[in-house]
């Protein structure tokens, strides 16, 4: 069972509807003339702490994109992280803030890939395991995108509010 582009669009629109109610910041974007041109984005500012050193925090801005990957027929989460001086955080720098991924091989899980719509480099959770994760949700969840995000989001500092979970 695979997620179709149409279902993806329907579910991300629902995310935006909930987000609007909560003023949570998710916005719908569309690029015309592309089959998978619909995606959603959100920006938020957070303090990142290095594991084992709770005094050293860095204020950063995250930009998340949820788009549809045609080849894998799955949703994909891409992100950019800026420091306060406007420079981007590299894959290795982000790795130092990220305890959850420590066990795995850095380049196999989080890699630089082209955004499926914008064709620009983004940090991306590699989509090759997504089908496995999302499979049960496609059968049982009202909104598989929310269910999937609630599982993989925390790996990249994205935690969904409970109100989303109530809707899936």
């Amino acid at each position: 069972m695979h997620l179709s582009v149409e279902d993806f669009v329907k579910h991300v629109k629902d995310v935006v509807t909930i987000s609007d109610r909560l003023m949570d910041g998710w916005a719908l974007k569309e690029k015309e003339g592309i089959e998978n041109g619909t995606y959603i984005t959100k920006r938020c500012t957070k303090n990142l702490t290095k594991p084992g050193n709770t005094n050293a925090t860095t204020l950063v801005t995250f930009e998340y994109h949820i788009a549809y990957h045609l080849s894998y027929a799955v949703p994909i989460i891409c992100l950019k992280i800026w420091k306060q001086d406007g420079s981007l955080i590299s894959l290795e720098e982000y790795w130092e803030f990220n305890n959850d991924l420590k066990e795995s091989n850095i380049y196999d899980t989080l890699t630089q890939l082209d955004h499926p719509v914008l064709c620009q480099p983004f940090l991306t959770l590699h989509p090759c395991k997504t089908q496995e994760i999302i499979q049960p949700f496609l059968e049982h969840s009202k909104n598989p995108i929310i269910s999937w995000l609630s599982v993989v989001g925390p790996f990249v500092h994205l935690n969904l509010l409970d109100e989303y979970i109530h809707n899936c």
Partner: peptide, 25 residues
Amino acid sequence: SEVYKFSNKEMIEAYFMACLKEADV
């Protein structure tokens, strides 16, 4: 914002393997 930062060869390899996997999918 336009160009990948490949600070070592492992990163290029990871990118290359990601493309290869996608092609095989």
